[in-house]
C-alpha cells in the first residue's frame, strides 16, 4: 500500500468541512475527505450513519449546508463528469427490451440527444469494456433476466465508459452472494489500479474489502473518520467517533465493531447541535 500522506499528487476529490442539515437534524458533521488517483477507498457505515447523504454530496446531487466539494483537482472544474457512478441495483421489468450491451452503451452516449447511430468505433469500445469486466458472455441477454452480480458488472462497464477519474459504487455488495461480491471487489480493484481510477466503494461491512482497501472512511452518526485500516479500527478511536463506548474485535483476521459493555451510557445525547461545532476529527 502506498503512503498517501506523502501527497505528491493532487487529490482527485476533496471534501472540506462538509455539514448537511435537514430541518434541525444534522446528517453530516464536518466531514473531511481526500481521495487520490488510483486509490481504493471503502466508505463504511451502518444504516443511518449518513452514507447515502455523503454519496449524494460527492455526486453533486445535494449541496451541503456548509463546506466545499472539489472534484478533479483545482485545475479542471469539470466536476461530476469525472465521476463514474454504479447504482446499487436496477429496478427493471424482467421483459424490458434491453440487452446487456445496450445498457453498457448508454455509458458512452446515453446523455446525448437523438437516437444512437451505428458506428464501428462505438461497437468496438462497448465490446472492449465488456471483455474487460468479463461480461461478454451475457452481453446479448436481456438485462432484466440477468442476476444481480451480472447486472453489477454491466453497470460497472457502463460507468467505465464515461471515462471517469473516480468510480463510485453505491453498496454494490448488498445484493450479492459472497462469491459474486468477492469477484466484483477483485474486478473493481484490478481495474482501478490498471487505469489509475480512484475507487470509492460504499458498504456496511468492511471485512470483504480488507485486502484491497488503501484507506477507509468510517461513518458513524454523521461524523467521518478517514485513515489507514489499523489507525481507524481501534476501540478508543471509534468510541470517540461514536461518542459511545464501542470495542473493535479482531476475529481471525476479520474486524468487528461491537457496542461496549457499559450499557449505563445508553442515554448519550445523539441530537447534538452539530453544524456550529468545529470539532476536528
Amino acid at each position: 500500500m502506498m503512503d498517501w500522506a506523502a501527497g505528491k499528487d493532487d487529490p482527485v476529490l476533496a471534501l472540506d468541512n462538509i455539514s448537511v442539515q435537514f430541518d434541525k437534524r444534522c446528517v453530516l458533521k464536518n466531514v473531511n475527505i481526500r481521495v487520490y488517483p488510483g486509490e481504493f477507498i471503502g466508505l463504511i457505515g451502518s444504516n443511518g450513519a449518513g452514507k447515502s447523504t455523503l454519496l449524494k454530496v460527492i455526486l453533486g446531487l445535494l449541496s451541503p449546508t456548509q463546506g466545499t466539494v472539489q472534484v478533479g483537482g483545482p485545475a479542471d472544474g469539470k466536476g461530476e463528469r469525472l465521476m463514474g457512478y454504479v447504482p446499487q441495483k436496477l429496478f427493471l421489468a424482467p421483459d424490458i427490451p434491453l440487452r446487456g450491451r445496450d445498457l453498457v452503451a448508454l455509458g458512452l452516449d446515453g446523455h446525448r440527444w437523438g437516437i444512437p447511430l451505428f458506428s464501428k468505433e462505438r461497437k468496438r469500445r462497448v465490446s472492449e469494456i465488456l471483455e474487460a469486466v468479463d461480461a461478454a458472455r451475457y452481453a446479448d441477454a436481456p438485462v432484466g433476466q440477468l442476476s444481480g452480480g451480472e447486472q453489477q458488472r454491466l453497470l460497472i462497464a457502463q460507468a467505465l465508459l464515461t471515462d471517469p477519474q473516480i468510480l463510485l459504487l453505491d453498496e454494490p455488495l448488498s445484493n450479492l452472494d459472497i462469491k459474486s461480491a468477492y469477484e466484483v471487489i477483485q474486478l473493481v480493484s484490478r481495474i482501478g489500479r490498471e487505469k489509475g481510477i480512484a475507487v470509492i466503494l460504499v458498504a456496511h461491512d468492511m471485512n470483504p474489502l480488507l485486502g484491497v482497501m488503501d484507506r477507509v472512511v468510517y461513518l458513524a452518526d454523521g461524523k467521518a473518520l478517514m485513515g489507514q485500516i489499523p489507525d481507524v479500527f481501534r476501540s478508543d478511536v471509534l468510541s470517540d467517533l461514536y461518542g459511545y463506548p464501542v470495542e473493535v474485535l479482531n476475529v481471525q483476521g476479520r474486524i468487528m465493531v461491537v457496542g461496549g459493555r457499559n450499557f449505563e451510557n445508553n442515554g448519550y445525547p445523539r441530537e447534538a447541535i452539530c453544524c456550529e461545532s468545529n470539532e476536528v476529527l
Partner: peptide, 14 residues
Amino acid sequence: YRPLLLSSIDPELA
C-alpha cells in the same frame, strides 16, 4: 430518445 431511455432506466444515474 437516449436521455429519456437513460432516465427511464435509472433516474439518479441519468
